[in-house]
Design a protein around this nucleic acid. Structure first.
Lengths: 168, 168
DNA sequence: CTTGGAATGTCAACAAGGCTGACGTAAACT
DNA sequence: AGTTTACGTCAGCCTTGTTGACATTCCAAG
């Protein structure tokens, strides 16, 4: 390769070494544990799991969403989601309303009680996130977001962006 | 508060709004799916799961590690780890040697076959990671790492750093 | 030297939450 | 009328987490 003194394509690509990548992989592994630790503690008190948290989060995020839409977002099977939704509905945290335009659809909403738990969970998660963001600073956060987005599949990126921009 | 025109403590803290935090949370959720997607595909061919991947990764990372040490790193119960280790040993991917100094300890090593699978898994994961890193650029990567580290518990941070620096 | 406690690892049984496959119902579409 | 779509459910499986009981080994105090 007839390149400059940095070796490859005129840029310093040392951040792409296997060692750097492995550190990133391990950081991702440990950080995700931290990311879920606080909500997990709250959930275990209530005999719920992460699956319940995810459902609650996205129903809060897109109230009136249909089951199918939620399936797309969560990327699980309907049997799996259904089990979780059933308990949430039985426990009065989620309300399921038959669609007006299309009566096959069920639109999902959080009840007051559901909103209360959502608040509690997301407060816990945001508190840690906020501390991490503050420690790292705004530029680090921008980089953090860029790498995470680049790590998603095309489909997830679409879902993520749609959710971010329109809330649907 | 008698601060500058940005309102709080002279810095622009718009990156700490709840909306920004929620986007970060969702990015983390979707990115982690991407992060595990490629190894998951390989593992499902072999009737293994993520737990096997984690064990293989860290045994490769710290050959000769004891079960207890691995438990600390992985943050699961020993019974849970043991089941995974047992299948890996039965399948000839991991070797367990009784400790010389302390015969209660078992020291874990990857066999050739185990190393081969580790390579296959980490190649898949690194490929995606490398693409994400390259897309985002070195500064973004530095920020990514900073935020992830700030998101860990103190204990995990210690483990992570120790592993990063000494490999033990 | 013995003995009791601590440390290390194994086995058994259970629960959560993924998965597939099959089936039923109601509504919408063509 | 016939097909497709949206949703719910039953049955059964697997992975991976949990707790409890148990065997082995080490070490230190008596």
């Amino acid at each position: 390769m007839a390149e400059g003194r940095t070796g490859i394509s005129g840029e310093n690509l040392l951040f792409l070494t296997d060692e750097q990548l492995r550190q990133g992989i391990e950081a991702m592994f440990f950080a995700y544990r931290g990311f879920t630790a606080d909500p997990d503690r709250i959930l275990s008190e209530l005999a719920y799991g992460r699956a319940h948290h995810r459902a609650i989060h996205f129903i809060n995020r897109a109230p009136g969403t249909t089951v199918n839409n939620l399936l797309d977002i969560l990327g699980v099977t309907k049997q799996s989601l259904n089990r979780v939704l059933r308990t949430l509905i039985e426990d009065g945290l989620v309300e399921s309303r038959v669609g007006q335009a299309d009566k096959r659809e069920r639109h999902l909403f959080l009840t007051e009680q559901g909103k209360a738990l959502e608040q509690r969970l997301s407060d816990a998660q945001r508190t840690r996130m906020r501390a991490a963001y503050r420690d790292a600073g705004p530029e680090a956060v921008a980089g953090f977001r860029m790498v995470l987005e680049a790590m998603m599949d095309a489909e997830m990126q679409q879902t993520y962006t749609r959710l971010k921009e329109t809330g649907i």
